[in-house]
């Protein structure tokens, strides 16, 4: 049971959150101009690193805000949490 520090509500149990997959995958500004490969990379392709991984979570049982978590996929340690538009500060 991870303890996730919601940037607005403070530390809460993992069960209060919704997982949103890899962070910083921006929606392409002009999808129509992408070729199939580029579009497929946006839609289907995600990292699966061993170690630190930036991912999105949403505090669904609390403030309903999406934010970013840097989490170690081996130790499950939450290394950092940061709001949209912020940089990681560990």
């Amino acid at each position: 049971m991870l303890l996730i520090g919601c940037p607005w509500c403070g530390p809460r149990d993992e069960t209060e959150f919704r997982y949103g997959g890899q962070a910083h995958v921006a929606y392409p500004e002009t999808p129509a101009e992408l070729d199939d490969q580029q579009w497929a990379e946006y839609v289907f392709y995600r990292e699966n690193p061993k170690g630190p991984f930036a991912e999105r979570w949403m505090h669904s049982a609390g403030c309903r805000r999406w934010f970013n978590v840097l989490r170690d996929t081996v130790s499950y340690e939450v290394l950092a949490v940061y709001r949209n538009g912020e940089e990681v500060s560990r």
Binding site: R18, G20, A26, Y27, R56, M58, S60, R64, R65, W66, N84, G85
Partner: peptide
């Protein structure tokens, strides 16, 4: 219902703030 609201919020908060 819940999934759609989360979906709308995700776009509003992360892509089109």
């Amino acid at each position: 219902a819940a999934g759609v609201l989360d979906w709308l919020e995700e776009w509003l908060q992360t892509e089109w703030p």
